[in-house]
Simulated assay, not measured.
Amino acid sequence: MRWFCQGHKATALALCLLSIIVGGVTGVAAEPLGIGSTPAGTPSYAMALAIAKAVKEEAGLDVLPKPFKSTGQALPLVERGELKLGLSNGAELAAAWNGTGVFKDRAGKNIRLVARLFPFRLALAVRQDDPAQSLADLKTRTLPSGFTTTTTGEQLVAAMISTAGLALPDVKTVKVADFQSMRDAFLDRRTDVTVFIVGSGVDEELARKVGGVRLLELPAGAEADARIKAVLPVARTETVDPKDAGPVIDRPTRVMSYDFYLYAHEAAPAEAIKPLISALLNRKDTLVAAYPSYAWLGRQTIIGDIGLPYHAAAEEAYRELGLWPASP
């Protein structure tokens, strides 16, 4: 370029200046921040897309979903700083932080919470024509198990059937790799039961394909909650109103829930963390339009406590907003 600029000063000055400007912009332009999610078409991918759109509107920040087979596969990359952001549930994050379960002997002490997003509400579902009318009836049915590429899949099933006094050895099971293979097994009738996430477009489509599903309601009361927490400490039961639940639920139904979080590597830049929090609080219409469960998110719910520290910039942002300290 130097010889061209020197030899063609009269005709090339503008081109030389343009090349310098464009090259400079290219050199300093920030790369999009990756946010670990599951594959396109799954709930956490849709959640990540919603966040990406909201923070682009709020601050012009580029965030792109980085899909993995499960949220648990993304977590070690965030722990090592190879990926700055991720989406995961409280059970998985607590296991990673404490070095338990699939994270045994490899505790992830570099991960930090950014925001609690909303609860994942779920239940076990059977086809409309299935004879099972309650969780206790599942003793004669075939359930998914294994979930070899996920952290919490089998725990979810075990926690819900525990409220009926059942454990996985008490029922027939078929091993699956992840939640999508669980749905495939249900569609192919290799299993009689699937985990249904309330409000999930993927699961609503599955229900349509099989001619409708029926959710098996969890029992209410302290004993049911205690049994669930014995298997999955961050989970609880709650009653879902039909108006908040999509087409599958037509009456108030008690389900299991646990919270989903946005988290980050401890060294993720403050220049990204603070705009993300602003977007979550200020761009609710955008978030809800992309993923309706974000309707739950707000100033009083955005901070949760699962025993992990918050990113320093997130804590600073919440203090500035008058929302700190966290309240479980």
Rank of each mutant, 00 (worst) to 15 (best):
R2Y: 05
Q6I: 14
T11F: 08
A14W: 08
L18H: 00
I21H: 14
V22R: 11
V25E: 02
T26D: 02
T26W: 05
T26G: 04
A29T: 13
A29E: 10
G34A: 09
G36D: 09
G36Q: 10
G41H: 00
P43V: 08
A46I: 06
M47S: 06
A48L: 11
L49E: 10
A54I: 07
E58D: 11
A59D: 04
V63M: 09
L64P: 00
K66M: 12
K66A: 09
S70P: 08
S70F: 07
Q73W: 12
V78Y: 11
G90Q: 10
A91D: 08
E92W: 10
T100R: 14
T100G: 07
T100L: 12
V102Y: 14
V102I: 15
F103I: 11
F103N: 07
K109H: 07
A115P: 07
P119K: 13
P119N: 13
F120M: 14
R121G: 00
L122K: 04
A123H: 00
V126K: 04
R127S: 15
A132R: 15
A132H: 13
Q133W: 05
L135Q: 11
D137G: 08
L138K: 14
K139Y: 07
R141D: 10
T142H: 03
T152Q: 04
T152E: 08
Q155L: 15
M160I: 13
T163R: 14
D170A: 04
K172A: 07
V176F: 05
V176P: 04
A177H: 02
R183L: 01
D184A: 12
F186L: 01
T191W: 00
D192K: 08
V193D: 01
V195M: 00
V195E: 01
S200R: 02
V202H: 12
D203R: 00
A207N: 06
G211I: 14
G212K: 05
R214H: 06
P219E: 12
A222V: 10
E223A: 13
K229H: 13
L232P: 07
T237P: 07
T239W: 07
I249Q: 02
D250S: 11
Y258Q: 15
Y261E: 11
Y263G: 00
E266I: 14
E266D: 14
E266Q: 15
A267M: 13
A268V: 06
A268W: 09
K274T: 09
P275G: 08
P275N: 11
P275W: 11
I277D: 03
N282M: 13
L287N: 09
V288G: 09
A295C: 07
Q300K: 06
T301D: 06
T301E: 11
G307V: 05
Y310L: 01
A312C: 03
A314E: 03
A317M: 04
A317Q: 06
Y318V: 03
E320R: 12
